[in-house]
Nucleic acid binder design. Structure first.
Lengths: 340, 340
DNA sequence: TTGTAGGCGTTATCAT
DNA sequence: ATGATAACGCCTACAA
């Protein structure tokens, strides 16, 4: 049989559709007896309100669009988990759409969301700002996550990459490193660029007179391996590595260790993100609480949808330096703890 | 200004809304000149069709509901990624809803999806079948992922846990293990139960006469650590461990190694899932291609929505044994001897 | 307290 | 080829 509609319920309860709507939505202007009859009828028919029709009528979908690039494992799941947690807390659904990096699918994806979401969360660390601004429907409330530039008119949440990088370099210098190599991320990625920027600034500040060393990477483990091989063939006195993300740090770490280089004694290594694996490999890193960012993004967007005014438009998430075995010396507690 | 609607476009192009709809949807019964005028008007107004209204009219939402438990990192992201890949390929959105394990939120979540999705993917390894069957709207096409029981009337996709467990035990016995401990998952979890079942059957078959050893766990790393501590205090001759998932295997591995136990020489260890970390820790495991399951689930559901008939109702995904260092180390000749 | 009717934005049917 | 109009299922003035 076809789905029961509000009309079927009305008929069965011998009332008007208006009364059914009122009764089922908990309005107070219905006699208790009527409400009971309606509820009974609804149950008997297995009536479930049609969310689509409801949101058309209310012009309110109770859903948030999420547009993400093709993210890697941990980052994606943590972000979405945080978002989902807050969304379900606030009574919203999440409508997901991965836009694959290559395409200019961003506009398409965003357009398709019109009329089914109340607002969107967009993560686009690689999309040029003008393209983004153009693709965003001007009337749809949006919150940008790690967008290349702070579009002043759009609320955003970003990682404080420079602060993280500075903390990492400061720490490396503090344990005695001087010639510190930076394995960079993709150039078009804003996080990568800011981390590199932070690296340069921190070197100038904490290791003045020492020339920065850059190895181009792409956030993939292989780039870290390549950097390590490069070091193995010509060490150039490198005694510290700061990778723009953990995966590259891990690739570098594994390759160096496999070649017999002592980490951290000969070369100390630090990464960025604190992926779960970092703990197991005892990798020093800048922790980014991804789920927290997702939660916060949803919270801010929903606040705005519900009319709360924003105090800060462009929020920064502060990474936290987590010191582990790859910079802390062979006999640290962490290492012992994990038997590495 | 408010969003432009189809009426605004019609007015501006001096045609009826019907023509606008036809022109924009690429129907052939419109004069080219008319179509051009409509498209021009739409662009000028920045018109974007209202997906909600559209789907109400078409009674088709182009969206799939995804109801998942509160999953941990890798599993969640891989599954959703696979689903998303296939969904966007087929032109569907994903509407996400984590139902947190405790609650009886399943019915609520499912009801709220009525009228905004064309079908749902439900993963509920812990929900009793009758509760599930009751919560599922009978008219909404659904596909069950790792549901406790194969509800014959509902299409499903499941992991062949027994096959995986058998392969693991066979391998462990093959390399010489005899007293193999199974660290089990939560009792209410169907995957965990099936893996334990597979363990028992395989022990009876490959190590007849040797008594199975069970250590209760919960899929968390700590359970593996507890199992290891238990072994350390009383080894009972255990020379092999088969954990119901990788995280427990990893907890066990780390704790044993930290205590100086040689893995795999003294104790061999195998897990289940093949999380990314498994490779780094060189953990032997049964690989489950999670993204593939997600893709397949969406593909099957969409096929059904589009009228394709299903040949197989209850599909099984075959795990693949991946042999690594935690079982392959010292006595690989023994493995060769068994032709494994 | 309850019912009638119009509207949310779109598509589809039926005339023209 | 085009236009008027009735759905789609719900909510909410406005009336009674």
């Amino acid at each position: 049989m076809a789905e029961a509609t509000i009309r079927d319920v009305a008929r069965r309860a011998k009332v008007s559709v208006a009364s059914v709507s009122r009764a089922l939505n908990g309005l107070n202007n219905v006699r208790q007896a009527t409400r009971d009859r309606v509820i009974a009828a609804a149950n008997e028919l297995g009536y479930v309100p049609h969310a689509g029709a409801r949101s058309l009528s209310l012009s309110r979908a109770n859903a948030l669009g999420v547009v993400l690039p093709d993210l890697h494992g941990e980052f994606f799941s943590e972000l979405v988990r945080g978002m989902d947690r807050e969304a379900s807390r606030r009574g919203y659904f999440l409508l997901l759409s991965n836009m694959h990096a290559e395409g200019d699918q961003a506009p398409t994806a965003l357009r398709a969301m019109h009329g089914r979401v109340d607002g969107i969360l967009v993560m686009a660390p690689h999309v040029p700002p003008e393209m983004l601004e153009q693709a965003l429907p001007s009337t749809l409330p949006a919150l940008l996550i790690n967008a290349p530039v702070e579009v002043p008119t759009r609320p955003s949440i970003r990682i404080d990459n420079e602060a993280g990088a500075q903390a990492a370099i400061r720490h490396l210098v503090g344990i005695g490193c001087r010639r510190i190599l930076h394995i960079a991320g993709p150039e078009e990625n804003i996080d990568a660029r800011e981390r590199a920027e932070g690296y340069f600034k921190a070197m100038a500040r904490y290791a003045p007179g020492i020339e920065p060393l850059l190895f181009p990477g792409n956030f993939e483990e292989e780039a870290g391996e390549a950097a390590a091989r490069d070091m193995l063939s010509d060490r150039r006195g490198v005694d510290g590595v700061f990778a723009a993300n953990d995966m590259m740090a891990i690739g570098c770490l594994q390759t160096l260790r496999a070649a017999g280089v002592q980490v951290p004694d000969e070369v100390a290594i630090a990464g960025f993100d604190d992926v779960p694996m970092a703990r197991y490999l005892s990798l020093t890193t800048c922790r980014v609480r991804i789920a927290e960012i997702g939660e916060r993004a949803v919270a801010r967007l929903v606040d705005r949808l519900e009319g709360k005014i924003e105090r800060v438009l462009n929020e920064r998430h502060q990474p936290e330096l987590v010191v582990r075995g790859t910079t802390a010396g062979a006999n640290s507690d962490e290492m012992a703890e994990h038997g590495l």
